[in-house]
């Protein structure tokens, strides 16, 4: 297989297979959650919890109170750095927007490529810092399973290969681009069957937590 054939495969059948597994897998995961339902709440409600639920979806993305910030400073800084960097790299790079436009039918403005490049570097450094923490901090090390390291690698590779493709580092561009797309496909396939699902389910979690707190009339 030469680089052209490889690129054709990853951009065609490969991408379709990955997208199909991702979509069907995520649908199954969401059904698994919602089909469990909730027991009827017999207590008298302080409110229906809708506004508290919606508020919690937003407030948990914001920095927490000062004390919690101070206690978990490393996770806060690296966590924000990684997630903001990843978001910019995925959704604000011109070729990515063009691909999404061809899939979704609509596009949006991109950031200048050097800016995206900077955010990619921030994401890469944050991810390495988080891996270092996972390997050294007693709590995170204790909690970590092989899946945590697999998911780390699956997230790191698309960023790294994307960065390498843009800078034409060490390998021929067409191979780098092919490997970049393949690594994204691996990420998509892993997505529904790992903790990567949090990108979707965190909104459900925050909603339930906020809503149930609102029903009780307590803060969340």
């Amino acid at each position: 297989m030469n680089s052209a054939e490889f690129l054709l495969w990853v951009r065609g059948p490969g991408l379709n297979i990955a997208l199909a597994i991702f979509t069907i897998g995520m649908l199954i995961r969401l059904l698994e959650i919602f089909m469990l339902g909730r027991k009827q709440n017999l207590a008298e409600l302080r409110s229906n919890g809708v506004s508290a639920g919606l508020r919690t979806i937003f407030t948990r993305s914001m920095p927490a109170d000062k004390n919690s910030m101070r206690r978990s400073m490393f996770t806060f800084v690296a966590g924000y750095g990684f997630h903001i960097g990843l978001f910019v790299a995925i959704f604000l790079l011109t070729p990515h927007i063009q691909l999404l436009q061809s899939l979704l039918g609509f596009g949006w403005p991109a950031l200048p490529t050097p800016v995206v490049d900077l955010f990619t570097v921030i994401a890469l450094i944050s991810l390495m810092a988080l891996l270092w923490r996972r390997l050294t901090h007693p709590v995170v090390r204790y909690l970590s399973t092989p899946q945590d390291y697999l998911v780390w690698a699956a997230t790191f590779l698309p960023l790294l290969t994307g960065y390498m493709s843009y800078h034409h580092l060490w390998f021929p561009y067409s191979w780098l681009l092919g490997v970049h797309i393949l690594s994204v496909e691996f990420l998509l396939i892993l997505f529904p069957f790992s903790k990567l699902t949090h990108a979707f389910t965190l909104f459900i979690s925050r909603w339930y937590t906020g809503m149930m707190a609102g029903e009780k009339g307590v803060a969340s």
Partner: peptide
Amino acid sequence: APTAAFFSSCVH
């Protein structure tokens, strides 16, 4: 459902 959403969301 909340429990399932919580376990699905934990990133350790």
